[in-house]
Amino acid sequence: MTKFKANIVPLNAEKIGHKAHGTATFEIDDNQLTINIEMHDTPANIQHWEHFHGFPDGHQAEIATMDQDQNGDGFVDLPETEPVSGTTMVPFNDEPAKMDIPNDEYPVSDANGDFSYTRVVPLDQLEENFKKAFSDSNLELDKRVVYIHGIPTDVNLPGSVAGEVGPYDAHVTLPIAVGKIEKA
């Protein structure tokens, strides 16, 4: 069995009023990838997109910090994470192996802002779809970062905050926490 872990730390906490934090673990055993994410102090009672991001060429992804706020609006939005973290790769939704990112099948936090997510994914199916999406790239978990996204729609975001994905606006895609995946 091979294990990986990410300690997830807050991002954009000062602006959103939540210091979202938690852990993510990934265990590979035979042909299964078990994903477990435990989050705390996220905005309550809303859906939170969560994914791992990275570079298809295998370049080492790093976590974004407030240093990535290139336009100086006080927020690190999804496009501002890309230079250090790469692109959105695998969603942690109802069916990660399908690699269907924009949908409404992500965890919803409880009234305290907590949520748990666990999925057992057929590794061969995930790897096959990953290679199709990213030109024969490999998962390489230890070169990826985990992002947790999502703030309430009543939070006033400046027009400079970007991150629209299909019908979903920056409230859905704004990163609230991030962690570097490392071999355990």
Rank of each mutant, 00 (worst) to 15 (best):
D67S: 06
N103E: 04
E95I: 00
H53K: 07
T88V: 12
E128K: 10
G54C: 01
L123W: 03
I37K: 05
P107R: 08
M99A: 13
D69W: 14
A64T: 01
D73C: 10
G86W: 07
F134K: 03
T34P: 05
S109A: 12
F55T: 13
D124L: 06
G86F: 14
L78A: 09
T88S: 15
F115A: 01
N129S: 04
I46E: 02
D94P: 02
R119F: 00
P79W: 05
Q60S: 11
N36C: 11
E82S: 10
Q47A: 11
P56G: 04
D124E: 09
H53I: 14
N112C: 13
F52T: 07
Q125R: 14
P96R: 01
F55R: 06
T42I: 03
A64F: 04
R119P: 01
V90R: 06
V121E: 00
V120P: 06
A111K: 14
N138K: 13
N112E: 13
H48Y: 09
A111M: 12
M39G: 04
A44P: 08
L139Q: 02
N71I: 03
F52Q: 15
K131L: 08
H51C: 13
P83I: 04
Q47R: 09
D104S: 15
T118M: 10
H40Q: 12
P102D: 02
P79T: 00
I101Q: 10
S116W: 05
Y117V: 06
N103R: 13
N129F: 00
Y106D: 00
L126V: 02
L126F: 03
D104Y: 08
V90C: 12
F52D: 10
F92Y: 08
P43N: 00
P107F: 10
Q68L: 14
P79N: 07
A97P: 01
V76Y: 11
W49Y: 12
G72V: 00
P122Q: 06
P107T: 04
P83R: 03
V120Y: 01
F52K: 10
H40P: 06
